[in-house]
Design a protein around this nucleic acid. Sequence first.
DNA 1: TAGAGATTAGTTTTT
DNA 2: CTAATCTCTA
Length: 667
Amino acid sequence: MSFPLNPAQRDAVRTTDTPLLVLAGAGSGKTRVITAKIAHLCESGIDAARIVAITFTNKAAREMRERTQALQRDAAKPPGGGAVTIATFHALGLSIVRREAKAMGLKAGFSIFDPSDLESIVAELVATADRGRARAAQWQISQWKNALTSPAAALAQAKDDDQRAAAHAYARYADTLAAYQAVDFDDLIVRPLALFDADADAAARWSTKFAHVLVDEYQDTNPAQYALFRHLVGTQGLFTAVGDDDQAIYGWRGATIENLARLHDDYPRLRVVKLEQNYRSSVRILRSANALIANNPKLHAKKLWSELGTGDTIHVASCADDEAEGEMVVAAISAQRFEQRGKYGDFAVLYRGNHQARAVETALRAQNIPYVLSGGQSYFERAEIKDIVAYLRLVANDDDDPAFVRAVTTPKRGVGESTLAKLGEVAALKKQSLFAAVFEPGFNAIAQPRAREVLQQFCALINDLRYRAAKEPAGRLLAELVRAIGYDDYLVATFDKRDAQNRGKSVQDFVDWLSRKGEADEKSLLELTQMIALITLLEGREGEAADVVHLSTLHAAKGLEFPHVFLIGLEEGILPHREAVDAGNVEEERRLMYVGVTRAQRTLHLSFCRTRKRAGGRVDCRPSRFLDELAQEDLRYRGAPLPADEAARAKETGVERLRALKALVAR
DNA sequence: TAGAGATTAGTTTTT
DNA sequence: CTAATCTCTA
């Protein structure tokens, strides 16, 4: 870990007087370069408070923070002034919105709506009961926001009725959210930009705040993020953008590779440094990765090399179906762990879509092998956590109607659809929140006495908590809240014993986590509530770095590495995904495969299924075209049984192995 | 209003 | 074949 930087890395670290783009291949030590550069900037006399490093995921931000701190300890030099800001784009945006809330017309306790909160709101705006249609409109609005397209422009470029309906909804969207005193995820980037356009003072505040801006995973920025980046860079124009065009996998979220080309135009003094030495994978793995990605047209040609030795051949397995594939993977993990005296934590199983984890999970559970699922449903998306968070949101912001509805109906307390409908009528009439409508004479007149009483009690509880939130510790209030609403009783009554216990445990973990967080960072309940909306990881558990098999989507695996990687479901329609093929996005799918292959340090297992269960029946599958694009001489067939005659042939060269495989599949 | 049972859709990645 | 939504009854 402490071996010296290579010449290219050193170059990247020491270039501080001109804008810099670092093209960092997979495993080329980019996080190391960023952290070393932060340390270097501090040493060269820049106040740490004037340095910002931006990442895309909370996990990456956390890792960078840890490594920066470690480096500063080693340097035995107290960091001057404040601390370096290390945050995701969205967390950074949140701190801007928070600081400028008043200027944006938001109260301090504004809510952050997640997509599920917005779904019904958008459904109403486009006047549809069809969920698919509502979500399409929601997605479209998000695309427009990330592309910095105004509602008027959106309407002008709308191609069909659905898009026109979405554009009309988009025009009213901002006002609707304002009524709830809420912002969505995209707003965390877009609203600061709007403020900077309208308010020169605020614009200047943020364009001069940082002397150096570092961005990780630059290839994944979308136009809105790029605009924010440019603004933070300001007129001084000093930054370090680190990225890899071969790992751009968020095009569907509006990220555009053109941002790489744009950097040259917007900053003519831009220097480019390439990092091509890979410190992660064996030669065979890299050879296949290079061969694969060579099929994509390239802006900056790049060829990774490694000094880590030839390594094992890459295994390719054909499986009868997804169930067999799961069992094959688990059997291979058991055997390999035994042979190499490895740990479960050395293994990762990667796949295109979350649903593919299921078969592997089943097989792992059958063998009692511990595992973690990353990139699937996150901790904060679990129903029990969202229940509790709904109360917190309501305490922070009583205009938050979605939070009100969720909180008031969980646990069940005798307020149902008809009461909520009446409340909604009054609220709409008076242009008030649901919370405020509870105390309206008009509502009193039409509500059932019992429901009315329950509602008033509920609001009293929320008001009490709000009153105390300013002075009492967040953890204690939360614990009291959970008790006051009888949440444990609700769990026991609603779920079977085991499930109730699990959910109760995760609520308890949440209370503990928030208590610690509140004490450590001196955060108020309000700040913690807003932060929760952005956090996607179970932070508490991660510190343990448990010895468990990792299951992850390819997207969520970016930036990670494992000694042994299993890449499953390599079939046409899955990787590349059918929708992507139809939309002509095979190149992005290829980069996704490339990301998967380059996660592996020592061994790589590829597999595909010949058939797959779907909607009750069975569907035939064909191996992915990407298998053909790997370095065939490094592949070896293994796994599911081949007929004897083909097994003999399969022992020969990789090309023939693959042909034998395909012949088998063709039947 | 709330929970049990019937019905019907279901195809990708996430801050 | 699931899982989530919808409908019906106590």
